[in-house]
Design a protein around this nucleic acid. Structure first.
Lengths: 339, 339
DNA sequence: TTCGGGAACGGAAACGCTTCCGAAACGACC
DNA sequence: GGTCGTTTCGGAAGCGTTTCCGTTCCCGAA
């Protein structure tokens, strides 16, 4: 009895409601051309029989898939997950299903673009925080569906992101304003992404800020590491091993900054008394650890991308390059240099 | 030319390969009953035409959907995302697509179980870190597909999880071993889950450990808050406002512990000199902040659940209640009490 | 040479819907 | 009352596969 519900199809509903399948279909889809009374009756019967349309048949017969693929690396990192969370919420509200493709590591990546597992399965694909190379773009377009990007840098498709360089400047300018002149940078790169697509805005900000402040660049103060807290810690150790350590550290991300802080603390240095540290992102942990940072609205970027996608799917126009603002958040990890 | 690939179907492939659709289908699916030569020819033609089967038609005609629904709350928290990451990796390796249902908040939850949006769309559903009530179970079963759980507590379906009580005991026993007698507990509940399904193992561990140590319970040392770092901070403040504060704090999770630590630091207290703090989970940040904790293998739980699901989908037997071990990880936030 | 049996393959019926097109019904208007 | 325009509704043709049944073909055994 309960499991018989499995086999109920639209024909059953139509019959039970005393209408044709055509009418049943229209009623179920809220289509035009059904009287209110009939619609209600059909809906009631469907509910009664706990009928659910077969998305496969529906799609096969002409509709859209009602699915969108989301391609995202590093899901277990807050930034990516938050982006996804925002995106998912608006898509789900629009009754679209999210097909998740977690592409981690260079291997996965190649495999994804080669096989295009989402092909023929979705109406659109959203690329989250994922700089796409040229060849990859070409593959993606092979799918013949709408493409949207979010959280990465600009892209050939409609996209939403922050301005990395501006964010970096907000961090650097804060340190400079406090009076720091010997500022180190811990640059983080994603080892899973090819070099040519690594965003460089946050690094550019370092150099342009120093230039504008008339401070010569000391390349010994710049260390580039793979993304990650431990790597940040190592980088800090390297910086501390120099004859003249910095008075402030600008890290490309909060996690990296946290790693640096661990090293400082273990070295017996006090923050911000002995050395200032600033990150970027405003990771939830930043608040818990009193880390000064530059906040970017992450969830919002995902939501925004979702709304843009809905626009396009509806056939409407949408913006192309949306840049959301970032904002300095001053906490306890930065202060003027000693003396 | 490129976009014409959109409209290629199996009939085209069959024609081009000079076989019937039946044979083409068998060849494409590696089915029995096709000569090696024919199979190769069909495959070559398909590749040439860059043909991809329509999953809808395929499913409609009899196959499985090749999709599994994953229901998960709080995606942007590490624990949930890591679980998902593990699960996704094994499902994707098996060529199954993951349909993500992020169910956050009580509202979402009701909506999900009422509408069952995944109905008729998947071959199975995996419930991640999500205690399911009885009525909800009934709804879920209405979908008529395999159900698996992971990261939550035991469930009526095959599931994998840690033993919360054991994990809690590992934490408590560590503090007791160090010589603490005045131990506080910051219990965290998920405000988005109904009371009746809140797991209580971590709390039970507190009481049983004290009992076994012959230490009377002081209810003023137990504070229950909604899950979250800020809430942990508030809880700690409450504990500090008492005439006789604890010498150690057992927090239900690392994030909560971190919040507590922020309060302690702001109060000028030193960790672990003045007060010890221990969490549970081994969140990546725990390592960066030198937090002693009890590690649970999160990603592995997801992977394990994925493998169990594959077993079932293949029609094989699988385990029912898998419990993965937890392990004390001693870092710098715990030490014997002063004096 | 004939016959039986298995492997290889083809025809065609589902699968469950959407939508085009035409028919019927129903008012409104002259 | 007849005509015409709207609505409302039904018939039926797909949509692109899988799979059930046969049929053909080839090879070895009798």
């Amino acid at each position: 009895m309960a499991q018989s519900s499995q086999k109920i199809n639209m024909a059953d509903v139509a019959r039970a409601a005393g209408v044709s399948m055509a009418t049943a279909s229209r009623a179920l889809n809220n289509d035009y051309g059904v009287s209110e009374a009939t619609r209600r009756r059909v809906l009631a019967v469907a509910e009664e029989l706990s009928y659910v349309v077969s998305p496969e048949a529906s799609r096969l017969a002409g509709g859209a898939t009602g699915r969108v693929a989301v391609v995202v690396p590093h899901i277990s990192r807050w930034f990516f997950a938050a982006l996804l969370e925002g995106l998912e919420s608006v898509l789900r509200a629009a009754d679209l299903d999210v097909l998740l493709y977690h592409v981690d590591g260079i291997e996965d990546r190649h495999d994804f673009f080669r096989r295009l597992p989402a092909r023929r399965k979705v109406d659109a694909v959203v690329v989250l925080a994922f700089p796409v190379g040229e060849e990859e773009q070409r593959r993606l377009e092979l799918m013949g569906v709408t493409i949207i990007a979010a959280g990465g840098q600009h892209a050939p498709y409609p996209n939403v992101s922050i301005d990395d360089e501006t964010a970096g400047r907000q961090a650097m300018d804060h340190l400079l304003f406090l009076g720091h002149r010997r500022i180190a940078m811990i640059a983080a790169v994603d080892p899973d992404q090819p070099d040519e697509v690594q965003p460089s805005g946050r690094s550019n900000a370092y150099y342009s800020a120093l230039r504008d402040a008339g401070i010569p660049v000391d390349e010994r103060l710049v260390v580039t590491v793979d993304w990650g807290g431990d790597q940040g810690a190592d980088a800090m150790a390297k910086l501390l091993s120099q004859p003249e350590p910095p008075t402030a550290v600008y890290a490309h991300s909060d996690e990296v900054a946290l790693g640096a802080i661990r090293t400082l603390r273990r070295a017996g240095l006090r923050i911000p008394d002995d050395i200032s540290v600033i990150g970027i992102d405003d990771h939830p942990v930043a608040e818990l650890t009193d880390l000064t940072t530059v906040r970017q609205p992450v969830r919002e970027q995902g939501e925004r991308a979702g709304r843009m996608l809905l626009d396009i799917l509806r056939g409407e126009e949408t913006e192309h390059d949306v840049v959301v603002p970032t904002q300095l958040v001053i906490r306890g990890s930065t202060a003027p240099p000693r003396g």
